[in-house]
Amino acid sequence: MLKSIILKEWLKTRWYLIFAAIVTIAYSAFLMLRMHRAIDLKGAAHIWEVMLLRDTIFINSLSVLPLLVGLVLALMQFYPEMQRKCLKLTLHLPFSRMQTTLAMLLYGLLALVLCFAMSFILMRLSMQTILPPELIKHVLLSSLPWFTAGIAAYLLGAWVILEPTWKRRIAYILLSALLLRVFFVSDTPEAYNQFMPWLALLTLLCASLSWLSVHRFIDGQQD
């Protein structure tokens, strides 16, 4: 049954996931090419100096992309379920409702992690020849909250979309917006290092919120 659920989710989101992976990887590649180009133009020393003395990491424009990718994935995966009332059918499969919900969320989470990991690895490999490990670590650790925000956006998006009533949905949207703001409070590189393990845990726990919406759907809550 788990395989069938995953296949169903894949059929629903495959084109978007391929598109999202291409966009994320292509944008990361563009940022890396831009860094290489700057080195060709001004020399590696200039780039190192700017990174060390002005705390620049050259990939700041990547910050909101994972968030958008996560949010749109939630939309692509769960909006059809609600609009066509497919969720009712899904929840009547001979599989525990909670396991069905978790399987759907797990699929989305793994798809996002895979997509973000490819971007992360691409940046890591691309910087290997031009920057020392200390600066590579600095850049990658600085981008970690953005990718975590993408996962949080997906889980919060799923929670909002699965909610059957608009009154609650609006309240959830406001709360989600505030929660996602936490990931963008500071643009100082590595500012989230100490807070990151807690933020990651809080993000993963957001998966439990969708169960509330599903439960309200099962209870027949309507506008």
């Binding site: 409070v185 100082t188 100490q194 807070f195």
Partner: peptide, 12 residues
């Protein structure tokens, strides 16, 4: 709050 005027580290 998460930020601090004396530290760039974010935490509650």
């Amino acid at each position: 709050c998460f930020g601090s005027p004396t530290s760039p580290h974010l935490r509650p």
